[in-house]
């Protein structure tokens, strides 16, 4: 245990683009056979902010270049997984649903065992994979992913949920590696001030990046897929 002390004292967050082998306290960066495992990215955020739509758009944007799989965490059984299946963004064997017993944040933060099984099963059955997206069940502003489960996390909010959410903060908004503010096309209709949201997010997050998206437009997910590409480059640049 004493050997880990220095490790535990690492700065909590790494600057964007300088990802180390794996987060402190995180899972090992290699598969049992010693090769580098897939990058695991968590997507969290409140109900209805567009997490599943973002996952679907990311799969469409990245699936030709990357080997991808998705783990969904649903409150009610497999709905999100079934949405992804219906929309055929990935073959069914690349989508796995974790049931969370009415506690979606528990499954991604306090007891990640079911999600780890799902992630490892995907690597084993359809692998080798480049990227695994882990989508949380719709939850509140306090839900974040354990470092034992994911290497980076995206928090998705939307302009229709109120333009004061970035100001209110909470662990998701302040500490996620990427904050996505979705449904910008709706801003004029719901009276949300995007400038203010950007300012508030900057105040809460410092240098951590923020992406504004509108998934109704062609290529609307590009800011997020670009960010994932950069993370992946950093992930694979360091020897396993």
């Amino acid at each position: 245990m004493h050997l880990d002390l220095d490790h535990d004292n690492y700065p909590e967050r790494y600057a964007y683009g300088s990802l180390p082998l794996a987060s402190p306290g995180g899972p090992p960066a290699t598969r049992p056979d010693g090769t580098r495992r897939a990058l695991r990215v968590g997507l969290g955020g409140p109900v209805g902010s567009g997490k599943t739509a973002t996952v679907a758009a990311l799969c469409r944007a990245l699936r030709d270049r990357l080997s991808i799989a998705v783990v969904t965490n649903d409150i009610y059984t497999r709905e999100d997984a079934e949405y992804l299946l219906r929309n055929a963004v990935l073959p069914p064997e690349r989508i796995s649903a974790v049931e969370t017993g009415a506690c979606p944040h528990t499954a991604i933060r306090d007891d990640i065992s079911a999600n780890l099984e799902a992630v490892e099963d995907l690597e084993e059955t359809v692998g080798p994979l480049d990227l695994i997206l882990v989508e949380s069940g719709g939850d509140n502003l306090t839900a974040t992913f354990s470092k034992g489960l994911v290497d980076a996390q995206i928090f998705v909010i939307d302009v229709a949920g109120g333009d004061d959410i970035p100001r209110k903060g909470g662990p998701g908004v302040t500490t996620a590696d990427l904050l996505v503010i979705n449904k910008t096309d709706l801003a004029p209709y719901v009276g949300s001030d995007l400038e203010r949201m950007a300012r508030d997010a900057k105040a809460q997050r410092g240098d951590l990046p923020v992406a504004f998206t509108s998934l109704v437009a062609e290529g609307g997910v590009t800011p997020v897929s670009d960010w994932i590409h950069e993370r992946l480059t950093a992930w694979t640049a360091v020897p396993a």
Binding site: T100, G101, A107, I112, A114
Partner: peptide
């Protein structure tokens, strides 16, 4: 709170 998955089962 022992993280062994029990919370998802009734």
């Amino acid at each position: 709170r022992f993280p062994a998955g029990g919370h998802a089962h009734s």
